[in-house]
Design a protein around this nucleic acid. Sequence first.
DNA 1: GGGCTGACCTACT
DNA 2: CAGTAGGCCAGCC
Length: 123
Amino acid sequence: MNSDTQAGKTDDGNWYHKVWKVVSEIPSGHVLTYGEVARLSGMPRAARRVSQALRRAPRSMDLPWHRVINAQGKISFAEDSNPWQKQKDKLEAEGVVFLNGKIDLDFFGYRGAVDRLLWGDDL
DNA sequence: GGGCTGACCTACT
DNA sequence: CAGTAGGCCAGCC
């Protein structure tokens, strides 16, 4: 017996930890989109959940939340907002360059990193 | 239990 | 390139 009534277990709240883990694994000078973080966390359609997780992430864990941006290569905060400026400042401090208010995902994104390893720096 | 919200994404026009 | 529409799903009231 024993029931596996509780067979499910896991998740339930644990999915934040997965997101936090992935985000904490982002190397300096690189950025990931919400969708990619979600995918790497095992939840392809959970881009929105990622944002929620980042918001709930405690500051004590020192999570590099600023390395997570949207698929447009832009910061998801309002441009006239304080957090927007803060995130941009942090990214620039790590070597990320903003072009016209947007980040070149072909160079700083996950895919860009792989492509550079395969094709070289002459993208 | 039902409905609204949201640091979003993709596809189409 | 910009704007619109539909989708997705966990949290909160």
